[in-house]
């Protein structure tokens, strides 16, 4: 029984971390119409920098500065934001899909750095050893799990409330205005490039924050955490929940993470031995089908955008 509960706590913590990423993407894609092809990169950037700043020192390894968790995660958030600012400033003036290509490229580049720059990232074996916040004060593992879940949920709630305020403010209306009709927004004195860049940077910083929490949760980060599948999962969560609706984003994160976990479990339990090697591809096909199917048949998601006219 306690095994089930502690698994549920574990599951909810991971789903909540992913929900934070989805909220960041929702600001970019749902409210501003920006395509982020490298969600995993901004999540990973936040995670690695948090690890470098707050992790334990290892011989022959850069980083491990043992900074307090809030400082370390702030560094991760800042780095994710800088990365977004640099590539956003380069591409947001151009054809809309350049951002998609550039962010996809960032993800590929960052993954290859994570795999190869051993002095910095630990290479394929990744980085481990992270003093989790207040770990010393809460001795019991189960209680600590509950505490960490509460921490993640608090961050999720803060991000949710912050974004809700943001999108309902005049600033949020301006973002939607440039998404719907850039020319009209421009004629009203809005600067579409600057607004888009701000939205892109804020969204990426939220992803970076989730990456920092992830590192604190697992006390580990490796190149496989930056794999493109994370980007696909997060997209599927947003489109299932409903782009342009923050409640939908959170709902989608929990639903898709549950489906992903359940399908992985089912395949591992019931699929014949010979198929075990192929559970990954089967799950990837499912994620791809969810994305394409939603776009074809219910592009507005489970909870459609409520404010304004909605996406065409």
């Amino acid at each position: 029984m306690s095994g089930v509960v502690s698994y549920l706590v574990f599951f909810a913590t991971m789903a909540a971390i992913l929900a934070i990423v989805v909220l960041g993407l929702n600001l970019q894609w749902g409210y501003t119409g920006l395509f982020n092809g490298g969600v995993a990169a901004f999540f990973g950037a936040g995670a690695y920098v948090t690890m470098l700043l707050g992790g334990r020192p290892e011989p022959g390894q850069f980083g491990g500065f043992l900074l307090p968790f809030p400082v370390a995660i702030a560094g991760g958030i800042l780095f994710a934001g800088l990365l977004a600012w640099f590539f956003g400033a380069l591409t947001l003036k151009l054809r809309h899909d350049y951002l998609a290509i550039a962010t996809f490229g960032v993800a590929v580049a960052l993954e290859s750095v994570a795999r190869n720059a051993e002095w910095l990232t630990g290479g394929a074996k990744g980085l481990r050893g992270f003093p989790r916040p207040l770990e010393a004060s809460i001795a019991d593992n189960f209680l600590y799990g509950l505490f960490f879940l509460a921490l993640v949920l608090a961050v999720l709630a803060a991000v949710y409330v912050g974004l809700e305020r943001l999108v309902r403010s005049p600033y949020g209306r301006a973002l939607r205005a440039i998404r719907e009709d850039e020319e009209a927004a421009r004629s009203l004195g809005k600067n579409p490039v600057r607004l888009r860049l701000q939205s892109f940077v804020i969204g990426s910083m939220i992803m970076g924050a989730a990456g920092g929490l992830y590192v604190a949760f697992y006390a580990f980060i490796g190149p496989q955490d930056l794999a493109p599948i994370l980007t696909f999962q997060v997209w599927a969560m947003l489109i299932v929940g409903g782009a342009g609706n923050n409640r939908g984003a959170v709902l989608g994160a929990f639903l898709i993470w549950a489906a992903w976990t359940a399908s992985g479990f089912a395949l591992a339990t019931f699929a014949p031995q010979a198929m075990q090697l192929y559970t990954g591809p089967i799950q990837y096909i499912l994620i791809g089908s969810v994305i394409v199917g939603m776009l074809l048949w219910r592009p507005q998601g489970i909870l459609p955008e409520r404010i304004g006219q909605g996406r065409r």
Partner: peptide, 9 residues
């Protein structure tokens, strides 16, 4: 977006 999904499939 759809093209990413198609690629994955």
């Amino acid at each position: 977006f759809a093209s990413f999904g198609v690629a994955l499939i």
